[in-house]
């Protein structure tokens, strides 16, 4: 079996153990990191094709609000139902918007995506029924009728998040090695040639956009459960900027990069907010700047010998 899959399995085992052993603050941190790793995994799929959306928070927020609204309606806190509702909301939006987005490239792709995310933000902040700028609370997680104590529920949530996130990472790993997945590099390099080989570039990008949106939605649902709260800030451009930042920081070299990047980011954030609350954005900015200038391939490129020789 290939090394990436083995690595993912090891990470899954570590998380499952962690869900039992970690102190409670670390449980939340790990859950959020995994949730955001899903968003970043989706961005990686797009980044491979040279596409960088500046509004991926749209799907993150749609996932969270989709789950939150459905659960509020049903008066339940069921994680499985929430995952279905939120992911479905984000996925359908991604499929729908994909028809338009797939025709855009570069800065125009980035800007249209930003516009969509800000549209949602504009709707959410003024919607009194959804709590406006304050948002609303998500009920304590339950699992298919099982309602453990809140402390236990958080641990179970981490285990669920780990299983889901690792599963998705493995699936995307297989996808990225496939013909369809590798078409991303071809599209980034030369769209005209892709068309002249007989493939539809738009369709390929549409599929990637749908995948990315679905993953972001799933990440949004998990974040909502972990934080116990949803607000319009999830759709704001700064949230999108942060996702792009972590994606670029990790690099597009491997599906392990989103997990590593997301963790590193959450840990640095937690400590920085604790010890240097007034300088933590500056630290993040400086790191981003250094990576852009020194490591165009992201942190992951440190582990690679050379492009093109990565194990298939």
């Amino acid at each position: 079996m290939d090394r990436t899959i083995l690595g993912l399995l090891a990470i899954l085992a570590a998380f499952l153990a962690g869900s039992l052993l970690l102190p409670s603050w670390a449980v939340s941190l790990a859950t959020v990191a995994l949730a955001k790793a899903l968003v970043i995994l989706g961005l990686l799929v797009l980044l491979r094709a040279g596409l960088v959306p500046f509004g991926q928070a749209l799907f993150f927020a749609l996932g969270a609000y989709g789950a939150g609204m459905a659960l509020r309606e049903a008066g339940s806190g069921d994680v499985v139902a929430g995952l279905f509702a939120g992911t479905a909301a984000a996925a359908s939006a991604a499929v729908l918007l994909g028809f338009l987005m797939a025709r855009y490239r570069e800065i125009f792709f980035a800007m249209l995506s930003l516009a969509f995310s800000m549209l949602l933000y504009g709707l959410l902040v003024k919607n009194a029924a959804l709590g406006g700028t304050d948002g609303f609370n998500v009920p304590a997680p339950t699992f298919l009728g099982w309602a453990p104590s809140p402390a236990t529920a958080r641990r179970v949530l981490l285990a669920v998040a780990a299983a889901l996130a690792i599963g998705c990472h493995a699936a995307i790993h297989v996808y990225l090695r496939s013909t369809m997945g590798r078409l991303a590099t071809a599209i980034r390099d030369n769209e005209i040639r892709v068309e002249y080989l007989g493939a539809s570039v738009q369709r390929a990008i549409h599929v990637k956009f749908a995948i990315a949106g679905t993953l972001a939605g799933m990440g949004g649902v998990l974040t909502a459960f972990s934080a116990g709260h949803i607000d319009p800030g999830m759709s704001y451009w700064t949230a999108s900027g942060e996702f792009v930042f972590v994606t670029v920081m990790g690099g597009a070299g491997s599906v392990l990069a989103p997990i590593a990047g997301s963790f590193l980011f959450e840990i640095v954030r937690t400590y920085a907010v604790e010890y240097a609350p007034q300088a933590w954005q500056a630290v993040v900015g400086a790191v981003l700047l250094v990576i852009i200038l020194v490591l165009p391939g992201g942190l992951w490129s440190l582990f690679q010998r050379r492009r093109g020789t990565q194990p298939p």
């Binding site: 496939s178 013909t179 078409l183 493939a199």
Partner: peptide, 13 residues
Amino acid sequence: VADARGLSPWRPF
């Protein structure tokens, strides 16, 4: 791309 079975999302490249 030329594969008659279509672009596969899982068969290795």
